[in-house]
Design a protein around this nucleic acid. Sequence first.
DNA 1: TTATAGATTGCCT
DNA 2: GGCAATCTATAAT
Length: 210
Amino acid sequence: MLNVLSRSPRLPASFYNRDPRRVARDLLGKVLIRREGREIRAGRIVEVEAYLGSHDSAAHAAAGLTARNRVLFGPPGRAYVYFIYGNHYCLNVSCLPEGDAGCVLLRALEPLAGIPAMSRARGLKTASAGLNELRLLSSGPGRLTQALGINRALDNGKNLTSRDSDLVIVDDGVARPRFKVTARIGIAKAAERKLRYFVTGNAFVSGRRK
DNA sequence: TTATAGATTGCCT
DNA sequence: GGCAATCTATAAT
């Protein structure tokens, strides 16, 4: 597993230099990897949401360029990490060329590697392989960042397409899975827009899985 | 300077 | 299913 993932190619900047809705769909089935020397923590992306630019009132970019959201207006393929509800970090990837905002929020991963390290980072007692324990690792946007040790000071603005980055998304050759599209979770504005994408039938998808 | 809402989670009933 | 915890970016005063 580790060898397969280590050999897998990173997604290039051109992958992210597109409409966030297209990027969101195509990220399903790809693998997010945190490298720590020879060790890695990794999970397959099974749930995402697209956030658009100024015409999407739910997006942080809707208010225009600010100190917090400047990464969204930068080049594609960068990590946009923000702190929310006084407790949680959320990880997004910037899309579209410099000057155009837009991103994809990563909402859930299926754990693949580094599970004991993820379990420790999440403060869970057991590293057991039961499905319930595994779901607690990275099913949810705040959970997956905690599991991979992602925070704003460390990772905001990081180039996910760079060779020497310790945070990357790779394509390990698994075909894009079937997916469903629904409204986004936890937002009040533009709540009717169908911009959430998740893998059909996957147990690691957070929230409602209809 | 003060107020408020928020792309969540986990614990309680 | 309900709701408190916890803090910061941004809006309002």
